[in-house]
Design a protein around this nucleic acid. Structure first.
Lengths: 137, 137
DNA sequence: CAGCATCCATGACGATACTG
DNA sequence: CAGTATCGTCATGGATGCTG
C-alpha cells in the first residue's frame, strides 16, 4: 500500500488482506460527484471563476442552459457554500454571483481536468471512431 | 487576458471587446463532462486506477451499481479509449478491465479533485446545514 | 462469470407563461 | 432583470429473468 494508490487518499475503505478498495455511497468523492456531477455545475463554477457575473450574462455564457435549470444550479452551489448571491435592490433588481474562497479552491482542483479535456479530447474522439469502425465490420 | 483566466486555456470562445467567455455545447470541457459526468464513470476509473480487476470484483468495489449500468459504463469507457477489456476464454469466461495510458492520464488529472473532496466535503456539508437553517427560520 | 433483454420508475431537464 | 410556477419529455438507471 504505497503512495499513488487510492488507499493513500484515506478513504473509509475495507482494507483487510486480500480485499479491494470499496467506495460506499457515502464516501466524500461520491458525495462530491452527486453534487457537481450534474449537467451545469462545473461549467457554472468555471465561468464564475473568471469573473463575477449577473444572471442574464451568466446565462448567455453557458450555451443552451434554460433559465429554470440555471437558477436551480446556482441555488445548489450557493447552498454548498461555493458561491455567493448578491442582490442589489435597484429597479429592476440586479443579482450578482461570485465564487467564495471555497468555490475558487474547488475550481483550482478542477483546472487540471479542464486542461486534460483541452489537450486529450481529440484522442478520445479518435478512439471512439476506431471503436465504432471495429463494430461496423 | 492574463494567465489563470479561463481564456488562457484556449477555448474556442468569443473574445470580442466587452464580451464574456462563452462555452458552446461542443467545447472540449463540455464534451468531457458529457462523457464522464454520469453517475459511475469517474468512480470506475478510480477503482481501476488502483488495480486491474474483473467484472464481479469491480462491481463489489462500487457500492450500489447495477450489473446493467456497470456494463454500460465499462463499454463507454472502452470506446473512449480509457480502458481495455481483456477476455480470457476460460470456462466460465473471465474478463479483466484495466486502464490504458490515456485513462491513467485522466485519472491523474482527477486526483486533485478527489483530494479536494476528501478534505473539503465537511465544509460543504457545514455550509448546507447553515443554508438550510436560514431558510427554516 | 459476465453478460444481454426487457420493463419500469424517477428525476433532470426544457419550454412556456406569468410576476415583483 | 431575475426570477417562480407548471407541464411535458426523455435519458438514466434500477429490477428481474435468461444465456453462452
Amino acid at each position: 500500500m504505497q503512495d499513488g494508490t487510492i488507499s493513500s487518499l484515506g478513504h473509509p475503505q475495507v482494507t483487510e488482506p486480500g480485499s479491494r478498495p470499496v467506495f460506499p455511497s457515502d464516501c466524500p468523492i461520491r458525495q462530491l460527484l452527486d453534487r457537481i456531477g450534474d449537467k451545469w455545475s462545473v461549467l457554472t463554477l468555471l465561468v464564475l471563476g473568471d469573473t463575477a457575473m449577473r444572471f442574464g450574462e451568466l446565462r448567455r455564457c453557458i450555451g443552451g442552459v434554460s433559465q429554470k435549470v440555471l437558477t436551480q444550479t446556482l441555488r445548489s452551489l450557493e447552498r454548498d457554500g461555493l458561491l455567493t448571491r448578491l442582490v442589489e435592490p435597484t429597479v429592476p433588481v440586479s443579482v450578482t454571483y461570485s465564487l467564495t474562497p471555497l468555490g475558487l479552491d474547488l475550481l483550482s482542483a478542477l483546472r487540471l481536468m479542464m486542461e486534460w479535456a483541452e489537450t486529450r479530447m481529440t484522442l478520445v474522439k479518435a478512439a471512439q471512431n476506431e471503436y465504432d469502425q471495429r463494430g461496423a465490420r
